[in-house]
Amino acid sequence: MNTSKSAGEIRLIRLDRIEVLNPRERGSRVFEEIVRNIKTIGLKKPISVTPRIDASGAEKYLLICGEGRLKAYQALGEEEIPALVVDVPDEDAFIMSLAENIARRQHHPLELLSGIRQLLDRGYTIRSIAEKTGLNHCYVQQICNLLRMGEERLLIAVESGGIPINVAVTIAGAGDDDKAVQAALQEAYESGALRGRQLTLARRVIDKRQRLGRAAGRTSTTKHSHISTTTVIRTYQDEVKRQTALVRKAEFSQQKLLLVVGALRQLLCDENFVNLLRAEALTTMPKYLAERVWPNGSHA
């Protein structure tokens, strides 16, 4: 079989011959939209692949770009898909696939971090990563610094738009010193870098960082296992405090309601007050309140 393909040649490729280089997760809603669009108007842009020969001598292809479209074709029961065939080395194919994932308008935060980390592990410089991904050089440098420090929680907050990158760098620079971290947070607030929802989110991230470690999710460090018991106790205590506060709030609201009901009963016994209400056409009240003022259903 002839495997010599000219760059940019579009061919129909069997789906079972395509191997995904950098598989990634995609929300079900987004995927359903891709499938619906392809079913309605067809494939607007072919996927990109590069040809290879497997151990048995058969031709296969490495997917560079278009995993969503490929899976959509599989979901629709298709056997072949239009593909732009480019002849590039393994390293270039890997980088092109990573860059495509990172440069997407709506990538997942963890995908960006994973992509940059893989490029770092392969020996790429910050400048070359910025050039290949189209990201700002300073931004990539700060991301790489946080990656080297293992600050995954801060990084996810940055990529989600929760807190600015410079604030994350300042917090990371404070290390595990709680006073220094709080001072960094206060400085960010006073400078206007953190406001409103961002400040609230930053406090939550810092709290999780202190309790669960810098790594996020299942990648948490050993520190997580060392403090798991303490974490459970603290979580329980926090929940008890929250429930106690809710009970107090409910009791206070009930006292105010009883006061209002008592006052209304006294006023409604005053004929002059009742006549005034009638003159102003205020002869009804909310059912919830009326049932408490007149528990037997009778009223003046």
Score class of each variant (00 low, 15 high):
residue 286 P to M: 09
residue 207 D to P: 00
residue 134 G to H: 04
residue 230 T to W: 00
residue 1 M to R: 02
residue 89 P to K: 00
residue 7 A to K: 00
residue 108 H to Y: 06
residue 142 Q to E: 12
residue 286 P to L: 12
residue 189 Y to R: 09
residue 54 D to N: 11
residue 20 V to R: 00
residue 208 K to C: 10
residue 167 V to N: 08
residue 62 L to K: 00
residue 51 P to Q: 03
residue 191 S to F: 05
residue 146 L to T: 10
residue 266 Q to V: 08
residue 275 N to R: 08
residue 251 E to V: 12
residue 238 D to V: 07
residue 98 L to D: 00
residue 126 I to Y: 04
residue 5 K to W: 11
residue 162 G to W: 02
residue 234 R to L: 15
residue 120 L to H: 10
residue 298 S to V: 12
residue 262 G to Q: 12
residue 158 V to S: 04
residue 112 L to M: 07
residue 277 L to C: 04
residue 229 T to Q: 05
residue 218 R to G: 08
residue 77 G to Q: 06
residue 257 L to R: 06
residue 200 T to R: 11
residue 87 D to L: 02
residue 231 T to V: 11
residue 275 N to H: 08
residue 182 Q to Y: 13
residue 86 V to P: 05
residue 23 P to K: 01
residue 278 R to G: 14
residue 90 D to M: 09
residue 228 S to E: 06
residue 238 D to W: 01
residue 289 L to M: 13
residue 187 E to L: 07
residue 222 T to Y: 07
residue 240 V to F: 12
residue 114 S to C: 01
residue 57 G to T: 14
residue 81 I to F: 08
residue 29 R to V: 15
residue 217 G to D: 15
residue 162 G to T: 10
residue 296 N to G: 12
residue 295 P to W: 03
residue 192 G to Q: 15
residue 216 A to C: 08
residue 54 D to V: 15
residue 145 N to I: 10
residue 196 G to L: 09
residue 45 K to P: 03
residue 268 L to T: 12
residue 80 E to W: 03
residue 23 P to N: 05
residue 116 I to W: 02
residue 28 S to T: 15
residue 81 I to V: 12
residue 31 F to C: 06
residue 297 G to D: 12
residue 46 P to M: 10
residue 267 L to Q: 07
residue 6 S to D: 15
residue 101 N to M: 01
residue 104 R to F: 05
residue 129 I to G: 04
residue 67 E to R: 03
residue 8 G to K: 00
residue 51 P to K: 00
residue 205 V to F: 10
residue 209 R to C: 11
residue 91 E to T: 10
residue 115 G to A: 05
residue 142 Q to L: 13
residue 282 L to T: 13
residue 286 P to R: 02
residue 210 Q to W: 13
residue 78 E to G: 05
residue 178 D to N: 04
residue 221 T to D: 12
residue 35 V to G: 03
residue 201 L to E: 13
residue 280 E to F: 00
residue 218 R to S: 14
residue 163 I to A: 07
residue 92 D to Q: 01
residue 169 V to T: 14
residue 8 G to T: 13
residue 24 R to N: 04
residue 96 M to H: 02
residue 295 P to A: 07
residue 277 L to A: 04
residue 144 C to V: 15
residue 152 E to C: 03
residue 300 A to M: 14
residue 3 T to H: 09
residue 173 G to P: 11
residue 109 P to Q: 04
residue 283 T to F: 06
residue 65 C to V: 07
residue 32 E to Q: 07
residue 201 L to H: 10
residue 264 L to M: 08
residue 51 P to T: 14
residue 246 L to A: 15
residue 182 Q to K: 06
residue 57 G to K: 00
residue 151 E to K: 04
residue 300 A to W: 10
residue 144 C to R: 02
residue 151 E to S: 01
residue 27 G to C: 09
residue 91 E to L: 03
residue 219 T to P: 02
residue 165 I to C: 11
residue 1 M to E: 14
residue 296 N to S: 11
residue 225 S to I: 13
residue 35 V to Y: 07
residue 205 V to H: 01
residue 34 I to G: 03
residue 293 V to L: 10
residue 175 G to V: 14
residue 256 K to E: 15
residue 129 I to E: 00
residue 170 T to P: 03
residue 160 S to L: 13
residue 236 Y to Q: 14
residue 282 L to V: 11
residue 49 V to K: 03
residue 242 R to Y: 11
residue 265 R to M: 10
residue 54 D to Y: 09
